[in-house]
């Protein structure tokens, strides 16, 4: 029988724009067919659904301050859903459930210095917060953005990145793990952790916001530890397997010594103080 109150029925959204960012990553601009707004917070995600293929959790990369009612997803083709999306064209529709999860604490960060650390695709959720902060520039103090990729051709959002580099009110450094000889690259070469010592950190004021592949966190946290940045001034966005996005399916659960958390509800953004004792978290 048909059901009107299913938690699993996606709403149709039309692809209104599509842009290649790297060889395997594309930016999609989406609009709900029924005209509603997504109403997300930076750091939240949606379940993107393609009938016949499945669903995948994807962060909303656009800031709620820009381009509404449409919203952007930055998607790397790694598997069934993401590859199928890459094969789709402007004008076609996908399903969206959400927004879900706990995003970045944009309010709490107000009045503080911010240190954004993005590795690879981790720029996708961070970009939402970065642009939110830039659109409310007066509410925030100093802004530092560190952005690392494997190689120059993997850097995304070049126009925005070069704008950060030009702006006087942003400290910005980019790095690549390596740069092939024939490629011209003005940024640093080396892993992202090497950029951290160069940042001015005010132990009372600076909040670090980190997002990247699972392997990156350990090393970034070690560097921040050296700087003695208090743990409750660090926010991380974690990736887990997710099937429902609404705290039911159990897949995203993370166990700790004292409690357990659901990445889809309690996260994906976590305060480091809260999860540092979780063997399974980092």
């Amino acid at each position: 029988m048909e059901s009107n109150d299913s938690l699993f029925l996606p709403e149709q959204a039309r692809i209104i724009g599509e842009r290649e960012l790297t060889s395997n990553t594309k930016l999609f601009d989406l609009n709900f067919e029924n005209g509603k707004e997504l109403n997300h917070e930076p750091g939240q995600f949606v379940e993107l659904s393609i009938a016949g293929i499945g669903e995948a959790p994807i962060s909303v990369t656009s800031s709620p301050t820009r381009g509404t009612p449409s919203f952007e997803l930055c998607v790397r083709a790694v598997g069934n859903v993401t590859n199928a999306l890459h094969r789709m064209n402007v004008g076609e529709t996908v399903g969206i459930r959400g927004p879900f999860g706990t995003g970045f604490p944009a309010e709490e960060l107000k009045g503080h210095d911010l240190l954004f650390i993005a590795g690879g695709l981790g720029i996708a959720p961070l970009r939402s917060l970065i642009n939110y902060v830039l659109d409310n520039r007066d509410d925030y103090n100093e802004i530092n953005i560190l952005y690392g990729c494997k190689k120059p051709c993997e850097q995304m959002f070049e126009d925005e990145v070069s704008n950060w580099a030009r702006r006087q009110d942003i400290y910005h450094e980019a790095t690549v793990d390596y740069c092939p000889d024939e490629v011209c690259w003005e940024g640093n070469v080396g892993v992202i952790t090497e950029l951290i010592p160069g940042v001015d950190i005010d132990l009372d004021e600076t909040y670090a916001v980190v997002c990247g592949p699972p392997v990156m966190y350990k090393f970034v946290l070690q560097e921040l530890e050296k700087k003695e940045l208090p743990h409750d001034q660090i926010y991380l966005s974690l990736e887990r397997r997710m099937k429902c996005g609404i705290g039911e399916c159990g897949h995203c659960q993370i166990n700790g010594a004292e409690e357990e958390l659901y990445a889809c509800q309690d996260g994906p953004v976590f305060n480091y103080e809260r999860i540092k004792g979780f063997e399974e978290a980092i």
Binding site: E2, N4, S6, F8, L9, A51, E92
Partner: peptide, 8 residues
């Protein structure tokens, strides 16, 4: 491209 929720 149509999706319908069901509940048996």
């Amino acid at each position: 491209g149509e999706m319908t929720a069901v509940n048996e």
